[in-house]
Design a protein around this nucleic acid. Structure first.
Lengths: 109, 109
DNA sequence: CCGCATATATCGCGACGTGATATATATGGA
DNA sequence: TCCATATATATCACGTCGCGATATATGCGG
């Protein structure tokens, strides 16, 4: 799973969001590291829905513009939790090796 | 950066390894989750060398078979440490949201 | 002698993120 | 008033990259 997909799932886990809101949430979640392109976003959203990880939520008109919301499914939440565990495990494994080899950890130390 | 690349870097950070040794190390590191295909491996190794993240090490004949070793560069070590930090941050962000939403964390609970 | 593990390498395919492009409305500055 | 920017949607061609298949060769165990 790419970082983009992971962050989109995380953004949706917080609360249902519309496309543009996801872009902003991911930018904030990643501390401005990941700027989602709309071409990426809609492709990912279609796949999330197809896989049952997310589903369409309400639609509303906000200031004359359509907002199409998406919501994380239970399955999507489980997938995200599982993936978070993998990421943490991988990061821990790398840090363990790096520490043993005397490489400075990324924590700014 | 894909999980495959991350685990290959981690395997090399431990000590210089040859291709087949990397495959086994990644399998072990990931607790049998990731089985590296050789098509993936050699493509990644070429890119790591091209990017200066790894370099060719010694070659030896072990039991009649050639072993071509690769070694992580300082730059590769820094990249790995940085990426490990990203993964940990992303995992923490997801877990924070999941916890707040009452989704069970992946930790086997 | 044959199958499996070890060990290398290449190639086409499919999946996916990127960048460009298109369309439309509200806001704010020149 | 007019134009740039932010908001908000969607599509498509392109390049990258992991996967699966394939090829080649040796050592070991049954």
């Amino acid at each position: 799973m790419s970082e983009q997909v992971f962050l989109i799932l995380t953004a949706l886990a917080d609360e249902p969001k519309h496309g543009y809101g996801i872009v902003q949430a991911v930018e904030k979640l990643s501390e401005n590291r990941v700027r989602l392109r709309v071409g990426t976003l809609y492709g990912v959203l279609d796949r999330l829905v197809a896989d049952g990880w997310a589903e369409r939520d309400k639609e509303e008109i906000h200031q004359g513009r359509l907002r199409r919301y998406y919501r994380l499914t239970d399955l999507g939440g489980r997938v995200l939790a599982e993936q978070a565990r993998r990421l943490a495990a991988n990061a821990a494994a790398a840090n363990s090796v790096l520490r043993a080899r005397g490489w400075a950890l990324g924590g700014g130390a």
